[in-house]
Write a protein that binds this DNA or RNA. Structure first.
Lengths: 190, 209
DNA sequence: GCTTTAAAAAGTAAATT
DNA sequence: AATTTACTTTCCAAAGC
């Protein structure tokens, strides 16, 4: 059994796609968004930032959104509701509840022990390690689909997971692999 | 029919033209980097394999060739930095690095096969700096101690070797400036200085003043 | 593929002071 | 030489080129 008691994970960013089910006139929307940017030549959506909750929104004429930078799913819901209230003032009509899909969650974390990444790269199958280009080992978990960056300090970054449960599951799988190849009992045999 | 035959001809034409272009680009890089023939042959072999597996899709031939050159150097332990290859390629370092990691993944070039011992980099840099065998041995000793103490994980191998050679030069009375070692290793002086400080501190090295 | 957005890890780089 | 800012890697959606 893999010991996860010393492992920590912290949500750093959540990305969600949203469908408001209403077409939007971006030329009108841009006027009611304070800190926003809209250059259809370089990007088809309005880039809008909220201070509370602190998120960035990409608003498209199809009525679909991308919300990024959130630290919780509730932040995303609050941001979407806030935008809907703003859009109502501009005359947008909403006939049904928005559909919110979590697409990606990014976590930072700590496994609680240090690693010799050369040793990890040597034995851990399906990993990448190019210290000249990036200081961490890149490990891809197939199910649940996620990617973990492992650093020599034992700190990690997990991205691509769609839920906190999936992120924990992915980290558990990495730890099982590390244990399987004798990479867990570091300290003495550096 | 005739049209089918023509399109087949066209396809093989394009494939042959692409291969010819790729191999001429490889020739150009190999001669400028003065690579041994077996490295050039390995790069060509990797390229053909990449084409066979359809790994070129969405990537430029030049980027993949540069990536194959870098991979061949790593596999055959002929030290060349990615920067040296990027210098003479029309493709930037970032794109070459991406292509390299992509072909490495799909041609099963594991970190183990690609691992180049710091010793090989020591000899390459020391050649360019005109440093003696004594300095090289000292640098390797420093690098081994650093590895044992866990000071090398995640760090740029080029930066570590540069700092080790700088220190070894000082200890053996064959001083090279930080600027000189940084230049051959293709890292900045700041990196050499940072590695130098950490190695001197944690390995308790006494540098003669 | 690319464009834009967010966020962390640790290393390296570059621009200021 | 110290600080600050910035870029490398990973993930994902959006609409359109």
């Amino acid at each position: 059994m893999v010991d996860m008691s010393n492992v920590k994970l912290r949500i750093e960013n959540i990305v969600a796609s949203v469908d408001l089910f209403t077409e939007l006139n971006l030329e009108k929307v841009i006027e009611i968004c304070p800190n926003s940017k809209y250059n259809p030549e370089e990007f088809p959506g309005i880039i809008c930032r909220f201070d509370e909750p602190k998120v960035a929104l990409l608003i498209f004429s199809s009525g679909k959104l991308v919300v990024t930078g959130a630290k919780s799913v509730e932040d995303i819901e609050r941001a979407v509701n806030k935008l809907i209230q703003m859009l109502k003032k501009i005359g947008a009509k909403f006939h049904r509840a928005p559909q919110i899909d979590i697409q990606n969650m990014v976590f930072s974390g700590d496994i609680g022990m240090e690693f010799n990444l050369d040793a990890v790269a040597l034995s851990l199958p399906n990993c990448e390690y190019e210290p000249e280009q990036f200081p961490g080992v890149i490990y891809r978990v197939k199910e649940p689909r996620a990617v973990i960056l492992l650093f020599s300090s034992g700190k990690i970054v997990c991205s691509g997971a769609k839920s906190e449960h999936d992120a924990w599951e992915a980290v558990r799988k990495l730890l099982r692999e590390l244990e399987k190849y004798g990479l867990i009992e570091e300290e003495e045999e550096w | 029919r005739l049209r089918k035959w023509q399109s087949r001809l066209r396809v093989s034409d394009a494939a042959e033209r692409n291969l010819a272009f790729a191999l001429s680009e490889l020739d150009r890089i190999a001669s400028q980097l003065k690579l041994p023939r077996h490295v050039e042959e390995e790069a060509a072999r990797l390229y053909r394999e990449a084409v066979r597996k359809g790994l070129i899709r969405g990537r430029s031939i030049e980027a993949v060739i540069a990536a194959c050159v870098y991979a061949a150097c790593r596999l055959l332990k002929v030290p060349r930095t990615l920067d040296e290859i990027a210098d003479i390629s029309r493709v930037d370092k970032k794109e070459i690095g991406r292509s390299f990691r992509f072909i490495a993944r799909h041609l099963n070039l594991t970190p183990k096969k690609l691992f180049v011992k710091p010793t090989d980099y020591v000899n390459k840099f020391a050649d360019e700096l005109g440093l003696s065998e004594k300095v090289r041995r000292r640098a390797i000793q420093i690098l081994e101690e650093a590895y044992e103490k866990g000071l090398t994980s995640g760090k740029s191998p080029a930066g570590l070797v540069a700092a080790a050679l700088y220190i070894a030069g000082l200890l053996e009375g064959e001083k090279r400036t930080q600027r000189e070692v940084a230049e051959v290793a293709r890292v900045t002086e700041v990196t050499v200085r940072n590695r130098y400080k950490e190695l001197v501190d944690k390995l308790n090295l006494k540098i003669p003043l």
